[in-house]
Design a protein around this nucleic acid. Structure first.
Lengths: 334, 334
DNA sequence: GTGAAAGCGCTAACAT
DNA sequence: ATGTTAGCGCTTTCAC
């Protein structure tokens, strides 16, 4: 390939004006069948492709959509990204993935950079971003997984209800002392999951705030938290862990203390990432419809972008219990 | 925020020409200290940010770099992406992650779309892309993890040598029958790893081509492959698995057959992803310097982009054995 | 040292 | 049904 040809080259070759070429390119305005053919032939002959940058400059929009995630190393987010990517790409947008480390400065820097590139909109998973900051940038946005503000559209799941179900499930299979490894306090869905745990646990006579330990939403934090929990309170026989990644840490912790999961300790977690099927034991978990929520968020954003719809939509999906091998009913053998 | 201000607004406010504003913006050309101050003040007052799209249109470059990965759900690639993202962002580029499913059509579509956006360069992990196709697009590129062609710069690791070491390691700890779960044949590094296995295995009197089973570089494929291997050949006591993700499947397979890892079966794999530390048992593996190779590829590409350096660079990093719990020396107790 | 002006490739009035 | 042209916001000759 030598030089990129422009709309002018096509016009010249087809012996029409650039406006006509633009018309057939965009499929609007009148253009006779005959000229359309000529133009199409010229386009083909030159292997012409319109320059998106010029288009963006004129339109002030770039056909780009970005997804902000706090931690690309947590498999939950690649799964989510996958959904957003599929949906946006399919609709002709270029998909940009931004890893923010849940760090406001990085988020702001990305927002700034993307705005300068006329990004059309962003889908954001964030615990640190505020509505005020977002407003400054005036970019269409949808919050995903974590609510930012009531005036920003969001797609989430019923975290509290799911957490209740999880905790209740542990009771139902016969656990007598149920502890919780929670996510960070500054993350809204972590707070909701904690509340759901409390909804059930606080009604039990054995309940004790020492049964809650914070595990940072990562492997290491959860492992430590679980070790503390299990060492201080050997009577614990059920554990609700705030996400799957942490549950892997919890299993490791139990293992390090010589405790068998699920024989001596039942563990249930949250998210339903693929990884949970592959651990030993496989994770019983409250599964989010990860692909759907990602796809839905993308859909909402695209509608917002294309129809200039300012309306704030709030959508909440339901999680679903998946029983695997990290929990076992008391008295049952393998 | 109301309306974006332009370079004209700044010029007007500072009472200079747009050319002068451009000069201070880009730090080139002469501009007196005094005017520089005036301009800076105007920029600040208007909270002016240059429009990258207009810049791109003029320059024909966009300050965007893309990374193509075949499978964002394999944790190896998020780790790699993380490195590329850090490096590119730090150098002022916008980072774009593209998931290709190792599918030539998707790769071509992305290439096309990105070219229209004047992307500066791409880093590509691919088994399907060819040098001919790449040439058609004429975009600076660096191949990562998998070599595409000798005339395209690449960053890889010593797959064959690493595989040899892995297999030798199994021998050294006393394994008598060592099998291999290989990656797909069309992936160059998988072929190399297979060769490395053969380098050692073929010299052994017990060797048998039935000790090689293909596992698709994913969890399910590896699980099946391992089940076949272990069922047909119960004498196998050592397994070299072509990557960590597959090793998780291999462990599951062993488990499903009631075989204990590492007591009855030692497993070593390849990659050194974080996930390997969290499995039960934790994976003994040939660790790639994932972050470094990603960062190095980004570095190479940026140099190529900025200095218009056409020179083809080939860089090979070394893998390193990390002993964890999926292997055990024969005769040793826990 | 600074300004005027052309032009990057495209789209959308506005004419005809 | 098609052509002419202004202009999106910027950078860079080329004058002065």
């Amino acid at each position: 390939m030598t030089e990129m040809s422009t709309i002018r080259d096509v016009a010249k070759l087809a012996q029409v004006s650039v406006a006509t070429v633009s018309r057939v390119l965009n499929g609007n305005g009148y253009v006779s069948h005959n000229t359309r053919e000529k133009v199409a032939a010229a386009i083909k002959q030159l292997n012409y492709r319109p320059n998106d940058v010029a288009r963006s400059l004129f339109k002030g929009r770039s056909k780009m959509i970005a997804l902000f995630v706090p931690d690309i190393m947590n498999p939950f987010f690649p799964e989510l990204a996958r959904a957003v990517e599929d949906m946006t790409t399919q609709q002709g947008f270029t998909f940009v993935l931004c890893n923010t480390d849940d760090n406001l400065n990085k988020e702001m820097a990305y927002l700034e950079a993307l705005k300068q590139k006329s990004v059309d909109g962003i889908i954001i998973v964030s615990s640190t971003m505020t509505a005020e900051y977002m407003e400054n940038f005036d970019i269409p946005a949808v919050a995903l997984d974590r609510i930012i503000h009531t005036n920003i559209s969001s797609v989430t799941v019923n975290n509290r209800e799911g957490a209740k179900e999880a905790t209740q499930y542990l009771k139902d299979i016969g656990c007598r002392r149920i502890a919780h490894v929670s996510g960070p306090e500054h993350v809204s869905n972590a707070r909701q999951r904690l509340k759901g745990y409390l909804d059930i646990a606080q009604k039990s006579e054995w309940f004790n705030y020492e049964y809650i330990e914070q595990g940072e939403y990562n492997f290491e934090g959860a492992k430590k938290a679980t070790q503390i929990l299990l060492t201080k309170h050997p009577e614990i026989d059920g554990l609700f862990v705030a996400n799957d990644l942490m549950a892997v840490g919890a299993i490791k912790a139990a293992e390090s203390l010589g405790l068998s999961v699920p024989d001596q300790l039942s563990i249930i977690s949250f998210d339903g990432i693929k990884l949970g099927e592959t651990t030993s034991p496989a994770l019983t978990t409250m599964a989010q419809p990860i692909y759907q929520i990602g796809a839905r968020a993308a859909e909402m954003l695209i509608k917002q972008v294309e129809q200039n719809e300012a309306q704030t939509l709030v959508e909440e999906f339901s999680v679903k219990l998946i029983e695997r091998d990290s929990t076992r009913k008391k008295g049952e053998n393998q």
